[in-house]
Simulated scan of single mutants.
Amino acid sequence: MQRSLAAHVNSNGLAISLMAVVAILFAAVPIGYNALFLANSRLASGTGVAYGRELSDNTKGSRPAGTSAVIEFTTVSGKTVRFDGGSASRYIDPGDHVSVRYDPDDTDHAMVDEDFLFFRLTYLPLTFAALGLAALLAVAWTSLHSRIQRSAIQ
């Protein structure tokens, strides 16, 4: 009975470990992508120029209920770009000035620069990576505990 229980724990541990590694790898891709974006991006001064699309959180303020802001900025090369600021722009009204972070190689990839931007961009992948790591640690702990019990019995 002890042998079959140990084999059962080992096979489940292997399956859980594989799923955890896959979760960590899938989380690493967007984390790396966003880290590269932040490292290579440029800052520009932008201005709210209009109200944008309706947001699902229905944030109210001085704008129509739950809308984002359309933001305009000029790149270092002199190109004028407009983009919808999404939920990060829900408190920006036309005429407001805001800091913008953009990719100089793809100026359509722009966003409102804000505190903790890296965390905002990666909190979901970081959560998956943390869950994967927790699963790996749980498997390692279970495996170690099982080995200690087997050696104590023998």
Rank of each mutant, 00 (worst) to 15 (best):
V100L: 03
V98W: 05
S99Q: 14
R101T: 06
L121K: 13
F118G: 04
D93R: 15
L124V: 11
I71D: 00
V98N: 01
P104T: 05
T122V: 09
D108T: 09
D93F: 13
S87R: 15
S89P: 06
G95R: 12
F116K: 14
I92S: 02
H109W: 14
V100K: 02
P104R: 03
S87L: 14
Y123W: 14
G78D: 04
L121Y: 08
L117R: 04
V81C: 05
Y91V: 12
R101L: 10
V100P: 00
Y91N: 13
R101C: 05
D105I: 13
V81D: 00
V98C: 09
F83T: 01
F118V: 00
R82A: 07
T80F: 02
Y91F: 13
V76H: 10
R120F: 14
D108F: 10
Y102R: 03
I71K: 02
Y102V: 04
P104M: 08
I71R: 01
F119Y: 14
E114S: 13
G95S: 08
M111I: 10
P104V: 06
H97W: 12
H97R: 15
E114H: 11
G95H: 09
D115P: 12
V76Y: 06
E114G: 11
F73N: 01
G95N: 08
D106G: 09
